[in-house]
Amino acid sequence: MEHTVISSSKFNAWFGDNHVVKDVSIAIEKNQVIAVMGPSGCGKTTFLRCINRMHELIPGATAKGSLKLYDDEIYQMNPIYVRYKIGMVFQRPNPFPNLSIYDNVIAGYKLNGLKMPKADFDNIVEKSLTSAALWKEVKDSLHKKGTFLSGGQQQRLCIARAIAMEPEVILFDEPTSALDPISTSSVEQLFHELKENYTLIIVTHNMQQAARVSDKTAFFYMGELVEFDDTKQMFTAPSDVRTQNYITGRFS
């Protein structure tokens, strides 16, 4: 049994009176790629955003129950520290338009006012961009604005930005839904390499993507975690009828 990084038990989340995540209990192991799928409005993104405490930023949003990073309750930690440890990549690439590629990668340090010798920053930038498979493409234009890159490059820049903070876990909220197929496949390829060092949790609408990239898949339906199993098992012999219906396209 490998080490568990993120675990929840009876975890609930609300938007006002709207109960969007219901009694979710899950244990996510280190260095795995977890796909989270389910129809729109099933609470998968909300659950993801609870893991790094982004959920509570929306007015009226509340959460209850146990959600742990290793042995620490996430909801008792300082949210700033949680977000250092748990990075996030969003649906649409969102590099900072006022910063260069270089500064975008170390934005987590720069914006927090963390100082370091320039050589260390150079190091972090090269390492993170290399891990995000972007170094070769941008190494000669590090001081150009990040928004000059293509959509796929921008998304990899955002991944580099998350990696630069050396988090334990990286959350991906439909990271390829705004990208073209070629950019999508380059990002998907990255997942395989990134899981050597990080634990990845990926919310996706795309079942093929879930099947391609993940070790384990979680299926959410109406705010509940219906099934959580090895991806292969899930796509060949799901144990719950709702999962089966979803996978076979009987509802969406």
């Binding site: 977000r83 649906q91 934005a107 987590g108 998350a162």
Partner: peptide, 27 residues
């Protein structure tokens, strides 16, 4: 300004006042 900009900064653990001063106002 798109809300995703603020989320990007917040998700890096940047405190709210720095998000405003360093990201929102410069943009």
């Amino acid at each position: 300004l798109p809300p995703s900009l603020k989320e990007a900064a917040l998700s890096l653990g940047v405190p709210y006042h720095r998000v405003i001063i360093k990201v929102i106002v410069p943009c």
